[in-house]
Design a protein around this nucleic acid. Sequence first.
DNA 1: TCTGAATTGAAACGAACTTTCAGTATGTTG
DNA 2: CAACATACTGAAAGTTCGTTTCAATTCAGA
Lengths: 161, 161
Amino acid sequence: MLKPLPKARSSDLLRARLREHGLKLTHQRELIAELFLSQDHITVEELYHEVAKNDPSIGIITVYRTLKLLCQWDLAQERHFGKGKTIYDNVAWKSHHDHLICTKCGRIIEFSNFQIEKFQEQVAGEHEFRITFHKLELYGMCKTCDTHVGKRPPRAHGHTA
Amino acid sequence: MLKPLPKARSSDLLRARLREHGLKLTHQRELIAELFLSQDHITVEELYHEVAKNDPSIGIITVYRTLKLLCQWDLAQERHFGKGKTIYDNVAWKSHHDHLICTKCGRIIEFSNFQIEKFQEQVAGEHEFRITFHKLELYGMCKTCDTHVGKRPPRAHGHTA
DNA sequence: TCTGAATTGAAACGAACTTTCAGTATGTTG
DNA sequence: CAACATACTGAAAGTTCGTTTCAATTCAGA
Ligand SMILES: [Mn+2]
Ligand SMILES: [Mn+2]
Ligand SMILES: [Zn+2]
Ligand SMILES: [Zn+2]
């Protein structure tokens, strides 16, 4: 997010990776990847419904399989916010970041903070531990939801952050 | 961990909570809570096996149900490290803390760091977000595992951190 | 166009819970 | 202590989310 990688067309990105791994370019993979790479965070279920709008013959199994491939190629990352279903983070053009998650409307805000990461390393050092990756999730209320507390619930405002 | 609450016998803790909520003290609940509150982190499966050593007639369903009660009373907290099963954190005598998780041996180290929490608040402020709770998990290798890299795998050394 | 390997969708399967329900244990009242 | 209203329990069935299996189809490259 704060350090965008060199932008490439999503279709080229897919083709390149498939080539590298000797895999086939199918219209299913093309559509699924295209839709996934055009947004930020999405569940398998949601992506499946988007896909169905264009081609209802595609099965949700293929959505699962394609997302798994994208994860292997570091174009996507699995996230487990709340206790619900897995959210796939489109990281094709983003570097490492953490998240603020609104527990009321589901909005997801990305951030990265060098100071926090620095202190994480310090803590690890104190325990003679070597960090390879981490998860930091801050849950609470976004501004919109917070100002509506006690009043009527806010209208939808960007769950797809 | 760093700010231990006034220590009480686990059996008294259970009785008190059951009383407060008009629930019954059964020998199943007594045994399950006793064993759970005598350790730090455990899965339902593991706790079930411990319980079975004392009373094989107790079903795993009752372990699930009792842990759910302990969670409601803030004596336990669900954690989802890795992608496997839920780990229950005994927080009866601990205040908020985060974790270092060794991906090789499963060891769990607890810590709390005021600086990190401070910067979390700062980040939230920048995004006009109000944090209600958070999860910080640092994954990697503990000292023991790290020094054994490339050599033969280390013997078990305290998975039950 | 031919051909063999990769891919797909449906259905079966699996893991980790959760719900249902009839029989049992508990605490309370008399 | 006895009787009773309920809460509790264990087994089995049911959910949810995701994975495996497999016959039919599609793709890529010769
Ligand atoms: Mn993200
Ligand atoms: Mn802990
Ligand atoms: Zn919100
Ligand atoms: Zn270790």
